[in-house]
Design a protein around this nucleic acid. Structure first.
Lengths: 338, 338
DNA sequence: ACAGTGAGTCAAAACGTTTTGACTGCCGTA
DNA sequence: TACGGCAGTCAAAACGTTTTGACTCACTGT
């Protein structure tokens, strides 16, 4: 029922020229008399001709499409904090790609043989794990890649945009100390991405520099709120409860605030809370929670720009692009004046 | 420097077979002796061979990629209410596509000649305008399309998933009346998508059915908050101020709540507010605002499913898939008992 | 002994472009 | 008059797959 696709051949026939002439008329590769060009344009319009992108990119070796791979697959993991991160990053990258008239494609799991293979000129890999398998695969296939946040095991890749954590983490910890916190605990995530690795390092360095003991515990990103509550409850009741907690994800931060309220621990008077990710949870918790915003919009914008430059054979940059996270100080760490 | 791409030819040569044999070994089109298959697999692995997706889809006529077009281009428009809608929808569609091992591509403006053309087996068009230009173009090119929300001028397209507004809008208006609203005003958007069109119809029908006067005003989605405030301020101060306002976008709803507070109009006692979209604005406004949630996650899931079925040559459905919006009743419309 | 069958392989023909070399007139210049 | 060059066009060769028809064996059943 549905007729054959219209090809350049149909257009050529209708305009009574050769197919190469049609091609030239569109791409401007060679001069074409305006009369002929008119006929071709008309024929193409009448037929509803659109060049076949696969044929074109097979021939030219370019698809005009940029791939996007998020590590971990935030959304599939499913907590709402992750969903917000995922959505914000994906949305920003999509917006930026669209603005640049580039197709953006979400790449199905690249080493799943059942997954569709997609043509892409390059690929953005966001938040790789340490020694990330998928990143390895992409590099192995010689696909031009730009990373958002570096793979901690491969910090040397110059085509990257990364976040500069130390100053911001230091600022946060200094702030807590100014607010008279004396025992700041870090509840870090368990995944091996740069966010966890670097913020932990920064915390350690700060402790050392200030001569205070390091107090780190891990809270897996995979935990349900119920499971996390089981772990956090005792901590809040313990005699050596810290007077400030910096927790990786904002939904767990909000959870801690809630548990504290339940257990009668006053925030921020007896316990300050801050998170290393910002989301609706931290913004709307009671009290609102101080948080570091990863600035996904800027990351996305720079990543797309870098990718396009790279595809366009720009020279390898000396340095990765560096973005600064944004610190939002909120009520959860502002002790009332006394 | 970077060597030629590895092709099926290289693999064939290395395994000392013909290229068709290699192809069959991978696709299983014909039986291949296990010895040969082994040699081929090994050769492919050693060479790091990956089939060229463009060549493959040129030949087969399938790319394994689904396109996504959002109308309007929410994110580019830029209000934060839109950004959330955009992000949520894009995120959900991406998640679902990934789960189904399909590539999902954001299609650059389809009638911009400068924009990259992309190979797609089908295309999801979300929230088309009335008589949408882009939808026309896609149909004209005979690309299989699934719409999220119908084009009001083309309600007959069966490959669609749509929202069932009337029951929910009716429920909302009934609720307002139960809360003793006697003068309910609708502040509708100006765009011609189904959301605006259908909710307006539902409101009209409800007014008629209940014998109350229709009171509709328009508030363009494009307005800045400053501009919107200029329009809303006088309305709240006017002697014939309604005692309930249903406003299309939730950010404007939150704005109204703020203006009401400034002008000393008590919510919900003197003025009830509800919105026809849910977002962080409505959830976290003071008081929290009753809102209709468009249930983007379900829309996305069904749309992807429908698209895949359509590509797979499933029979044309009798009816569009119908999703129900979710009504969140919140403080802004709950009058305290008296 | 022989047709029929199935496994295993190959060669060649698409798929729809872009690009290149070559051809034809024609104009301007030496 | 001869000649280089340019505008305008065409034919043919890629690009890297999948698919199909055909071929060769070996094996089966009669």
């Amino acid at each position: 029922m549905s007729r054959r696709r219209i090809t350049i051949r149909d257009v050529a026939e209708r305009a009574d020229v050769s197919i190469s002439t049609v091609s030239h008329a569109f791409s401007g590769g060679r001069p074409i008399s305006s009369a002929t060009k008119d006929r071709i344009t008309r024929a193409a319009a009448e037929l509803g001709y659109e060049p076949n992108p696969s044929a074109r990119s097979l021939r030219t070796g370019r698809s005009g499409i940029v791939g996007l791979i998020l590590r971990p697959r935030f959304a599939l993991a499913g907590t709402s904090d992750r969903a917000e991160t995922f959505n914000r990053l994906v949305g920003s990258v999509a917006t930026e790609a669209l603005r640049r008239k580039t197709g953006l494609i979400h790449v199905p799991d690249i080493d799943d043989p059942r997954a569709a293979k997609v043509p892409m000129d390059g690929c953005i890999v966001a938040h790789p794990y340490s020694g990330d398998r998928v990143l390895t695969e992409v590099l192995h296939r010689r696909i031009p890649v730009v990373t958002v946040e570096e793979d901690p095991q491969r910090p040397e890749l110059p085509w990257a945009v990364r976040l500069d954590y130390p100053p911001v983490v230091t600022r946060l910890l200094d702030h807590l100390r100014e607010q008279h916190a004396s025992d700041v605990m870090l509840l870090t995530g368990t995944e091996s991405n740069a966010w966890n690795v670097r913020t932990r390092e920064s915390y350690r360095a700060w402790c050392e520099h200030n001569g205070v003991p390091v107090r780190i515990d891990e809270l897996s990103e995979g935990l349900t709120h119920g499971e996390a509550a089981q772990l956090i409850g005792p901590l809040l009741a313990a005699p050596d409860r810290p007077d400030a907690i910096v927790v990786a994800t904002s939904d767990f931060a909000a959870l801690i605030a809630k548990l504290a309220a339940t257990q009668g621990v006053r925030v921020p008077e007896e316990l300050m809370i801050a998170s290393l990710t910002d989301s609706e949870h931290s913004r709307t918790a009671e009290p609102a929670i101080t948080a570091m915003d990863l600035n996904h919009e800027s990351l996305a914008k720079e990543a797309v720009e870098l990718m396009l430059a790279r595809i366009d054979d720009a020279a390898e940059p000396e340095q990765p692009v560096v973005i600064s996270p944004v610190l939002h100080l909120r009520a959860s760490t502002q002790r009332p004046r006394h």
